[in-house]
Design a binder for these strands. Structure first.
Length: 496
RNA sequence: GCCCCCAUCGUCUAGCGGCCUAGGACGUAGCCCUUUCAAGGCUAAAACAGGGGUUCGAGUCCCCUUGGGGGCACCA
């Protein structure tokens, strides 16, 4: 059997990280088996369609490296891949069901439905529909239709018995048919509901495995019955667990902005992960560890390695949360593995996009010493703040002196440093030379003969930051002129 | 309210009847290294929700309870 999986989002807003997660598993399964991964847009609720959502979706999926073989942008043998463009097919198949007695036209008005709902609910029945149009005589149907009264098409669910939903992760999930009513499959505006649309599409697009959220498990009996009524072979159902909010309360949602213990925003939208400067391969690795394990106690792996071991059947059905702190750790691991050049080629455009232009040369000097300090690219905003602008030095004496190095000693060491730097030719302005000399100067001006206190002071003067990358690399990246300028400011405070 | 799903450290998880004095990872704490902060190394605390069965033997199988989640639209 050819494996064909699909990701079928609604273009109702930004892509959710949970969507990426479920798309990932479908994608991995298709790629593992040399199958096809299809992108289909389920836009049958036209009121909820948001302009630009499709573009956001495509951009996000691409960023994560989840490519598709058939889709709205590239077409394919079973297109179109946008449901509103397939409207005629759904109508035809709805008629087909009516002709064979599997479905019927329901002329209930909104007011009628409202009354029905109330009457039913008074009896503790929340199904909302009493099937009153199910067995209307043909003549009556024709009369109502001729009068121009709008109608929906409802699918006849069995009145009794059970319906079993074969779920790959849970086995047969059995439902009592009494709890169902006859659901709308074609709306009065002529567009299908999800139930009809996805069954028709998954059949004709020859989908072999349906991966979707558990929120569909309860309505899956309708889909099972629909497949049976059509006489079509059922794809394998894989209902993926929900991703919970970090506190474990409810589905992960962008409506309720949450914050982690460290005060960082909880990211929910796919594009927020891009913006935050995570590496896509790290995020994908992170997501693959949710509900699925590589095995052998390994958490970090390449996608190629994962595909060898991946099986949909191994996914855990238990609801889960995203361990965000683990993402930070993983992303840092990936960043550390990058070569200096590779880091620069990612960091430079990222910073530039955020209005922080620094030369690639300066970044390359810093690359080896900032790698282990970046959990994500955006951490560079704070870490490298001293490079972006020349703010006047804000410091008091207490920050520029040390119990082992008083004001006079600090000033003396600073003057010596300035003299040393100013005498250097550009060719001599090297990391090794600067490191050696500044250490010597530091050692000569403290009581204990250790360079530490002086280097601490120098760090603050040069970077204006309490926390910064290692001093010598920072000096080289900054350049002689800017460093001397800052030393002068430091001296002014010490002597003024 | 009814129906469905789920249940191992704080979190993500390994475990598919004996290999478990329950393993790994993140996080947390301590120590080492160290010019800040990291990274790195070492160590520590930390879990089978509860109760019944089945079995020679249960984290692993069954049932109940509890807890959490999901669903009950002319939304997907």
């Amino acid at each position: 059997m050819t494996v064909r999986t699909r990701f079928a989002p609604s273009p109702t807003g930004y892509l959710h990280i949970g969507g990426v997660w479920s798309a990932l598993f479908g994608w991995m399964f298709a790629r593992k088996h040399g199958g096809r991964f299809i992108l289909r847009i389920e836009d049958t609720d036209t009121r909820r369609t948001v302009p630009g959502a499709l573009e956001n979706l495509i951009e996000s999926l691409r960023w994560f490296g989840l490519d598709w073989d058939e889709g709205p942008d590239i077409g394919g043998p079973f297109g179109p891949y946008i449901q509103t463009q397939r409207a005629e097919r759904y109508r035809e198949w709805a008629s087909w069901l009516i002709d064979r007695g599997h479905a019927y036209k329901c002329f209930a008005t909104p007011e009628e439905l409202e009354e029905m709902r109330k009457a039913l609910e008074a009896r503790g029945d929340r199904s909302g529909y009493d099937r009153r149009y199910r067995d209307l005589p043909d003549g009556e149907v024709a009369r109502l239709e001729a009068s121009g009264r709008p109608y929906v098409v409802r699918f006849k669910m069995p009145l009794d018995g059970e319906t079993a939903v074969p779920d790959l992760l849970r086995g047969d999930v059995v439902f009592d048919n009494k709890q169902f009513t006859d659901y709308v499959i074609l709306k009065s505006n002529g567009l299908p509901t999800y139930h009809l649309a996805h069954v028709v599409d998954d059949h004709f697009m020859e989908i072999s495995h349906i991966t979707r959220g558990v929120e569909w498990l309860n309505t899956a009996p309708i889909h099972v019955r629909l497949f049976q009524a059509f006489g079509w072979e059922m794809p394998v159902f894989v209902h993926l667990p929900v991703i919970l909010n970090p506190n474990g309360k409810g589905k992960l949602s962008k409506r309720h902005q949450a914050f982690a213990d460290d005060g960082e925003k909880i990211l929910v939208r796919a594009d927020e992960f891009m913006e935050a400067g995570y590496l896509p391969e790290a995020v994908v690795n992170f997501l693959a560890n949710i509900g699925w394990t590589f095995g052998g106690d390994r958490e970090k792996f390449t996608m190629a390695e994962a595909l060898v071991r991946f099986e949909l059947a191994d996914i855990s059905p238990a609801p889960t949360r995203l361990p965000y702190s683990k993402l930070d750790w993983l992303d840092n691991q990936y960043i550390q593995e990058l070569s200096d050049e590779a880091l620069v080629s990612r960091l430079h455009p990222y910073l530039e996009r955020h209005g922080k232009a620094i030369s690639k040369k300066a970044l390359l000097v810093l690359a080896p010493v900032i790698k282990m300090r970046l959990k994500k690219l955006s951490d560079a905003f704070d870490l490298l703040a001293f490079l972006f602008e020349d703010e006047p030095l804000q410091a008091g004496l207490e920050q520029l002196t040390h119990k082992k190095m008083d004001r006079a000693a600090a000033a003396a060491a600073l003057r010596e440093t300035r003299a040393f730097l100013e005498a250097l030719t550009p060719a001599e302005f090297t990391l090794e030379r600067i490191a050696a000399r500044l250490t010597t100067i530091g050692e000569a001006h403290t009581e204990t003969g250790k360079a530490g206190p002086f280097l601490g002071t120098l760090r603050f003067i040069v970077t204006g930051q309490q926390v910064s990358p290692p001093l010598f690399e920072s000096i080289v990246a900054l350049g002689c002129q800017r460093v001397v300028g800052r030393i002068n400011q430091g001296l002014a405070i010490l002597t003024g």
